[in-house]
Each structure stands twice: as C-alpha cells, then as structure tokens.
Design a protein around this nucleic acid. Structure first.
Length: 299
DNA sequence: TCCCAGGAGGTAT
DNA sequence: ATACCTCATGGG
C-alpha cells in the first residue's frame, strides 16, 4: 500500500475534510479507513498523523484531489481576522477544500437544495445505484457517478424512487444540456468567478447558492462564498447584525453577505466559509453524527 | 402536528 | 427588481 508523508505546509485532516459536508460520497469504514468512488476508481485511504496510506489511485491524483499542493497555514492566516473565525480555524485544523470533478459536483449540489446532509448522501447513493456503472472492489459492488447520458434519459418514476422530489426534473434538464462533461468543465473553468457564476445559474436547478458551491468545490474559485441558512445565521449573529431577522434569503441579501465576506475575509473567503460552516452549532443532525462518531466523549 | 434542511423556479406585481 | 407561492421528503 503506497504512502504519502505530509510535510509541515501540508497540514491536513482527512476526517474533517471528508466529514465537513463539502463532498457526499465518502464512507467512513471500520478501522478509520475512508472509501469512495471518484470517477470510476475506488479509493481507500487512511491517515495516521502525517502519514497517508492509500490505494486505488496514484499519488499525483490524491495530491491534486485533496489540494495538498496548497499552503494551508498561509491560507488560514490570510482570513484569520477575528476571534470567532480564529476559533473556527482552531476547531477544524487541517480542513482542506477538495477539487471535485465538476460534473459530479454540479449534480450533487442540485440534489442538495433545501435538504440536510444525510438526505443528500442518501439521494446521491440512490442515483449512483440506479444510473451509475457498477464497479467491483474487494468482493463488493460499488457504483460510479452517473454519466450525463444516463440522467438525461431517465424517467420521472426512477428519479422519484431516488427520493429526488422536485429536483428530479432539474437534474434531468441539466443533464440534457451537458453532453460532454469534460468540455463543459473546461469552458466554465476558463471563466473568471462572476461570469462563471452567471453561466452556471443558467442551468436548471442551479441558483446562487449551488453555483457558489460548485465554483468553490470544483473550480477552485476561492472568492465564492456560498450562503445557506447556517452561514446566513452565523453572518447575522457575528458580522452583519443589521440584516433581516426573518423571511427567506433574497437575492439582494445574498449579495450583501457575499460582498461583505469577499471584502472582509479576502481572496480565500470561500475557505473561511467552509471553516465557519464546519464549526456551526445547533444542527441536531450534525450533532447526532458527531455523537455517533465519538461515543463517550464529553464536550 | 408543525417545523426545518448546503434553495430554486414561476408568477404576479 | 421584489414579494409570495410551490415544489418532495425525511427527521426532530
């Protein structure tokens, strides 16, 4: 089993990176091992201190996927602007933003709207089982992420059985508009943040929040600052107290928040967002997941 | 039972 | 531009 020994600038927490809610297809197995299928390759990986043991892909792929080429301490220092953010950084040391395959990320965040994280994972697993290509690994059958063609030709009933709800037609419509994911990803990636965002929002099921997530998690646009209900709450409570206290998030409030964040946290405000999101308090679902993961720990 | 979740599309104003 | 409505689904 190949190994990577992390250097100092490669500060990394596999656990936090994979469980913070940016990516939905990794499974935590017994023995501290994580497993997923990215593209059509099954990856297994485990961390012990500065040591990463892995299989299924090459070293170069992993370093790219987990952004190990980025100087994380320098990045967190760049947005470490106050005590609240400082505490979030301290709580999530080693959290890195993954470079997800654009097509998977796009569909995943269309599936994510108005749902909680366990439900999103369930939905995407359903999609893979129903529309993805089976891959054998260690005696079990896993499923690759569905190709555009498979989703473009899906029927409403099958999508409904994947618990897609009203998102089913968005996924189908968007899949029909993207024949070649590689070419599509290249075109979006060549654009700057704002034009890329506009382009993404033309797709069915992609609004401001999904577009910002896709730009951050798949296109390395770190100036994206996705605003969901948790981030909105955090920004209201700690940074923009004058914002509305109720009602749904309007486009203008969304833009006020992300503009503030871009100016306040700087060019890596997307990273700041992820540390704040991962440190959120009051999520009963995330709380339950943490309690399940760490039995016996007290506060 | 009501309320909420990594929201977005459609319609009337 | 903005306000309001609706869209499935599971869990607290």
């Amino acid at each position: 089993m190949p190994t990577i020994i992390l250097r100092r600038s490669q500060q990394f927490s596999l656990d936090i990176t994979l469980s913070c809610g940016q990516v939905f297809r990794w499974e935590h197995l017994a023995g501290g091992c994580w497993r997923s299928i990215v593209g059509n390759r099954v990856i297994r990986i485990r961390q012990e201190g500065t040591r990463l043991d892995y299989s299924g892909v090459g070293r170069r792929f992993l370093e790219q996927y987990f952004s190990l080429d980025q100087d994380l301490p320098a990045i967190t220092t760049s947005f470490d602007r106050d005590l609240f953010t400082h505490a979030a950084i301290a709580r999530c040391l080693g959290l890195r933003i993954i470079r997800q395959p654009p097509w998977e990320c796009l569909i995943s965040y269309i599936c994510a709207t108005n749902s909680n994280i366990p439900m999103i994972k369930k939905r995407i697993n359903h999609l893979a089982r129903t529309f993805g290509k089976p891959v054998e690994s260690c005696g079990e059958t896993l499923f690759g992420f569905p190709e555009p063609e498979a989703l473009a030709t899906s029927c409403a009933k099958a999508l409904s059985q994947c618990k897609m709800g009203y998102r089913g037609r968005y996924v189908k419509k968007t899949a029909q508009s993207i024949a070649d994911p590689e070419e599509w990803g290249g075109q979006i990636g060549n654009l700057a943040y704002e034009p890329a965002r506009k382009e993404l929002m033309r797709l069915s099921g992609v609004g401001p929040k999904a577009a910002d997530c896709i730009l951050l998690f798949a296109f390395q646009k770190y100036e994206a600052f996705p605003v969901d209900v948790w981030i909105r709450r955090i920004m209201r409570d700690h940074y923009l107290p004058a914002q509305n206290r109720e009602g749904s998030l309007t486009t203008s409030e969304y833009d006020r928040i992300r503009t503030f964040a871009r100016n306040y946290f700087g060019e890596f405000c997307g990273y700041a967002q992820e540390y704040l999101f991962a440190s959120r308090e009051g999520d009963p679902v995330a709380g339950a997941a943490v309690r399940r993961r760490r039995p016996g720990t007290t506060a």
